[in-house]
Design a binder for these strands. Structure first.
Lengths: 131, 131
DNA sequence: ACTACTGTACTAGATTGATAATACAGTGTT
DNA sequence: AACACTGTATTATCAATCTAGTACAGTAGT
């Protein structure tokens, strides 16, 4: 699945939300696939079920997941990707945060870019392994 | 100076801390230079003075700033950079977070790297302008 | 001395994120 | 019908963050 870092700057619910979106983007979760139940995923990630429930609700509102009440939660037939504007905004915000950190610790562009590629490849590989 | 995003995932005090470290890394703040007073910086960034005070204390403990009580706070003569291990850790964590976001919104490595360079250049330019 | 700045300290509230425990309604299996 | 699962809802509690207001000690200029 993916890992949660409870001591990270970004809140747990966001980490879970991005984790699910990543798995869908990479095909580790395909349309109509079931996602783990709220309680299962909470146990796996060692977080509170309420936190997972909130994420599923958000992703359902966003059209990424669909709920069949009493039965389970599934990836939507056509999982919505963020709108182009929203995608760019999140990408830009993320890039700004990372660039800010890199500059703060005295890392050059090349160093930062190299580390980015490493992380990107690692995350891709981890998820594609389960596709 | 730099901007604060109150609704960002990372806490305000961290944004301020990294902002100061960036300015020193880029030479916008040089050794022995005075930094704005707690109240001044708080007013400029539109945050609470307590938040700025905590950052100054952290940076003083880290050997980045020095305090002359009753007079002001200054950049240390030899502002400490994070240790190599700590630098790498922060860089890796930042890269992981950014790569995770990029994958979540369906952006490719190249797209993410391009956006990173843009942000890096922008931040550099903004700060070098005041050096 | 007076004034106006420094950093520092403290208390008190609001908000947010996360946890914990419980309960309820819907579905499928036995 | 009984049971074991689903998602959902509610309430309470705790910690972290940020804000607000106030106060105090040190320094500099008038």
């Amino acid at each position: 699945m993916f890992d949660i870092n409870p001591s990270a700057a970004s809140p747990i619910w966001l980490q879970i939300e991005e984790g699910i979106r990543r798995m869908i983007s990479l095909g580790a979760l395909k349309p109509a696939d079931p996602v783990p139940s709220v309680r299962d995923l909470a146990r796996t990630l060692r977080v509170n079920p309420n936190t997972v429930a909130r994420v599923y609700q958000r992703l359902t509102e966003a059209g990424v997941l669909v709920v069949r009440r009493g039965e389970g939660t599934y990836v939507a037939d056509v999982p919505q990707q963020p709108k182009k504007s929203e995608k760019h905004e999140k990408l830009r915000d993320g890039a700004t945060a990372y660039a800010g950190t890199a500059l703060a610790v005295g890392a050059g562009v090349d160093e930062a870019a190299a580390e980015l590629e490493r992380s990107y490849d690692r995350l891709s590989r981890e998820l594609r392994r389960k596709a």
